[in-house]
């Protein structure tokens, strides 16, 4: 399959079942909503060392938020419910409770109900106040700028993490340009985040290492500087490979993000040095979900 001169590999991305949740963060203005949300989703690129993968889903206008202030919605994903709940609580406590004017609300109505501000209320040292409206409990915690307002619970759902595709290009700037274009298009979609810096990851990994203590190491088959000395997956003209990892609330969301991202990358085409699109997998043995690139892009091929 070739789209605009870009070869789509006959392979698939392998993704995992995760637990996901959404939190709405509002503040006096978007700047301060972003300050809280950026802190909360910081150091959350990969579950390997960060506990959660998190990112900002989108901005919200005042008429969309519970308290009528501007805000952003944040998605968090983890491999299990226990770690997700723990990370949600610590991140909310350190990043939103601390942020001037910020408030936090549930972003998922259904699902399993997990604690949002339920335990943060104890920061109020007995001066916290509970209020129930419309069947939802909120906490008012007195803080130095006024009151920290948070909903008690949010929803946790079964989600999909680790969807991905690789962009193989003739130069590093061209690979990055294609990934930037893909991210711009993918950020318009609901229910997904691309958790790595700027949405793009350059250090794709393989399972195992020559060092006994490491469970994963650099994916040498896709390292362009090792083309001549390893069992490479790269043809001679490929000089740079970058990956976009996608976490979404459902496999449909990840599928759609994959399609939109690859389409945007392919629009730059072979003329701009984009040669191949591939994907990372583990032979289909580890993940519950497979996203076959050619099947996803079947509607896009000319």
């Amino acid at each position: 399959m070739i789209i605009n001169g870009v070869t789509i590999d006959d392979t698939f991305a392998e993704a995992f079942g995760m637990r996901g949740t959404r939190v709405l963060i509002t503040a006096q203005n978007l700047t301060w909503a972003y300050n809280a949300a950026n802190a909360m989703t910081g150091f959350a690129t990969s579950v390997i060392a960060c506990g959660v993968e998190a990112g900002i889903e989108r901005e919200m206008t005042p008429d969309e938020t519970p308290d009528g202030r501007p805000g952003v919605s944040v998605l968090l994903f983890a491999m299990g419910s226990a770690v997700l709940m723990k990370q949600l609580e610590t991140r909310l406590g350190q990043c939103v409770l601390t942020c001037p004017t910020a408030a936090a609300f549930s972003g998922i109505e259904g699902g399993d109900r997990i604690n949002l501000g339920k335990n943060l209320r104890f920061f109020g040292d007995g001066f916290q106040i509970s209020k129930q409206f419309g069947g939802k409990r909120y906490w008012r915690v007195p803080v130095m700028d006024g009151e920290f307002l948070t909903e008690e619970k949010t929803g946790m759902v079964r989600a999909v993490g680790g969807g991905n595709f690789l962009v193989l290009a003739e130069s590093q700037p061209q690979a990055l340009a294609a990934c930037e274009a893909a991210i711009v298009a993918m950020k318009k979609l609901p229910n997904v985040i691309m958790p790595f810096p700027g949405g793009v990851v350059r250090s794709g990994s393989k399972v195992g290492s020559k060092y006994k203590t490491l469970i994963a190491s650099t994916n040498d088959a896709f390292c362009p500087t090792l083309k001549g000395i390893t069992r490479t997956d790269l043809s001679p003209e490929i000089e740079s490979v970058m990956e976009i990892v996608i976490d979404g609330l459902t496999d449909k969301d990840v599928r759609e993000a994959t399609r939109v991202g690859i389409k945007a990358a392919c629009e730059l085409g072979a003329a701009n040095g984009i040669k191949r699109i591939s994907a990372g997998n583990y032979g289909g043995k580890l993940g519950q979900f497979q996203f076959h690139l050619r099947e996803i892009m079947s509607g896009e091929a000319a």
């Binding site: 209020k131 409206f133 909120y138 008012r140 009151e147």
Partner: peptide
């Protein structure tokens, strides 16, 4: 005197 954000939620309800 204070501006309490929770009042917005309340009056919305």
């Amino acid at each position: 005197s204070h501006t309490l954000p929770y009042l917005k939620l309340m009056f919305k309800a």
